[in-house]
Design a protein around this nucleic acid. Sequence first.
DNA 1: CACCAATGTAAAATAAGCTTTACGTAAAGT
DNA 2: ACTTTACGTAAAGCTTATTTTACATTGGTG
Lengths: 65, 65
Amino acid sequence: MKNTIKETRLKYNLTQDELAEQLNVSRQTIISLEKGRYNPSITLAFKLSRIFKCTIEDIFLYEEG
Amino acid sequence: MKNTIKETRLKYNLTQDELAEQLNVSRQTIISLEKGRYNPSITLAFKLSRIFKCTIEDIFLYEEG
DNA sequence: CACCAATGTAAAATAAGCTTTACGTAAAGT
DNA sequence: ACTTTACGTAAAGCTTATTTTACATTGGTG
């Protein structure tokens, strides 16, 4: 699943460390998410949507298959 | 996190088995989700939103804390 | 060049989502 | 009574998300 985490994070001028801290996850988690290595829990997705002031659907692009 | 899976499933006249099949998960997963025993992956949340023709935010109510 | 901040990689460990199997219960139909 | 359908529980096991630690790389700045 594609996501816009990196772009949006940069729009907010946040480092990976800062975003990780706001989400209460490790920096590794941010890196792995930005790199698309895995998909987050819905809880993490919601936290991201709060910080980025948008919907989950704005951040994550789901394509079935 | 609260969700409206059970209510929405019933609105669509689906059994737990049928919903599980459409989502490609086990019936146990549906039961556990409806009972709020755990939160789904974002992938499963997206699949649900497709089947229920609504947004993830319509199905799941996230309250921070 | 040396230094520091930000990003990246890799591997091992833990937590959480999800499956599988097996059994229990209650309602509805025959 | 017996069967079927739908829902529920419990436990063991597998898979994937997330953490932790440690080290490498790149770019800017003194």
